[in-house]
Simulated assay, not measured.
Amino acid sequence: MAMKAKRRTCSSVTLVAMVGLTLSAAPITEASAIEKKPREKYLSEIDPLRSEYGVDAGSAEINGEQYSQSVIMRADKSYVPYGDAEYKLGRKWRTFDATIGLRDDSPRKAVLKFEVFADGKRLHQERMKVGESSKIDVNISGKLRLTLKVSYKSSVDIENYCYGAWGDARLSNP
Rank of each mutant, 00 (worst) to 15 (best):
K37P: 14
K37F: 08
K37Y: 08
P38I: 10
P38N: 12
R39F: 08
R39W: 08
E40R: 15
E40P: 03
E40F: 14
K41L: 12
Y42H: 15
Y42C: 12
Y42F: 15
L43P: 09
L43Y: 01
E45W: 04
I46Y: 05
D47M: 10
P48K: 09
P48L: 05
L49W: 02
L49Q: 14
L49M: 12
L49P: 09
L49H: 07
S51I: 06
S51N: 11
S51V: 06
S51K: 12
E52R: 13
Y53E: 02
Y53D: 01
G54Y: 05
V55W: 04
V55E: 04
V55P: 06
A57H: 13
A57R: 14
G58Y: 04
S59C: 14
S59G: 11
A60C: 12
A60V: 09
E61P: 11
E61F: 04
I62Q: 04
I62T: 05
I62G: 07
I62D: 01
N63G: 14
N63L: 03
G64F: 03
E65G: 06
E65L: 08
E65C: 05
Q66I: 14
Y67L: 06
Y67M: 10
Q69K: 15
S70T: 09
S70E: 03
V71K: 07
I72Y: 00
I72T: 04
M73C: 10
R74A: 07
R74L: 04
R74C: 05
R74Y: 01
A75Y: 01
D76W: 02
D76C: 11
D76R: 12
S78I: 09
Y79N: 15
Y79P: 10
V80W: 00
V80M: 10
G83F: 00
G83T: 06
G83K: 03
D84N: 14
D84C: 07
D84A: 12
A85E: 02
A85M: 06
A85F: 03
A85D: 05
E86F: 09
Y87N: 11
K88E: 10
K88R: 15
L89E: 04
L89P: 03
L89V: 11
G90V: 08
G90I: 08
R91L: 02
R91G: 02
K92H: 10
R94F: 00
R94A: 12
T95N: 15
F96H: 11
F96S: 09
F96G: 10
F96K: 12
D97W: 02
T99D: 01
I100G: 05
G101I: 06
L102S: 05
L102W: 01
L102Y: 03
L102Q: 07
R103E: 00
R103M: 05
D104N: 12
D104R: 10
D104S: 12
D105C: 10
D105S: 14
D105T: 14
S106G: 07
R108V: 09
R108K: 15
R108H: 12
K109Y: 09
A110Y: 00
A110I: 00
V111F: 02
V111Y: 01
L112G: 11
L112H: 08
K113I: 03
K113M: 10
F114N: 06
F114M: 13
E115T: 12
E115C: 13
V116M: 05
V116E: 02
V116S: 08
A118P: 05
D119A: 05
K121P: 00
K121I: 01
R122N: 03
R122S: 01
L123E: 03
H124T: 03
H124S: 11
H124Y: 14
Q125T: 07
Q125L: 05
R127Q: 14
